[in-house]
């Protein structure tokens, strides 16, 4: 399953709850304010880095750019994708769940 998260993990628990409910082989895509979850060096980065052992993480590049988050600040191993990549993920995984 592909999970999308659109909330900053520093503000809401959507990402934390999502990570608690992913099974191995799933993917998590950070969109909108969810992209703050892709940043290195935040209080929540260790949670994401730990989850990355089991699931793949992606982040929407245009949402990063809009917020002035340079790609160099993104946790190593998180794939930066555009909306075409988003569509490909939705196609690749058999269903999606939005953590609103």
């Amino acid at each position: 399953m592909l999970h999308t998260v659109n909330k900053s993990p520093l503000d809401r628990n959507a990402l934390e709850s999502c990570i608690k409910h992913v099974v191995q082989g799933s993917a998590v895509l950070l969109i909108e304010d969810g992209v703050y979850g892709a940043m290195q060096g935040t209080q929540k980065s260790p949670m994401v880095e730990s989850a990355m052992k089991e699931v793949s993480f992606y982040v929407i590049g245009p949402d990063l750019k809009a917020r002035g988050i340079d790609e160099s600040r993104v946790i190593d191993g998180i794939d930066i994708i555009d909306y075409n990549g988003f569509v490909d993920l939705v196609e690749e995984y058999d269903k999606t769940q939005s953590w609103l």
């Binding site: 659109n6 304010d33 929407i60 949402d63 909306y83 988003f86 569509v87």
Partner: peptide, 12 residues
């Protein structure tokens, strides 16, 4: 932003 993301996704 939801409507914008939905639009960008749909277009792609």
């Amino acid at each position: 932003e939801a409507a914008d993301t939905a639009y960008n996704f749909t277009k792609a």
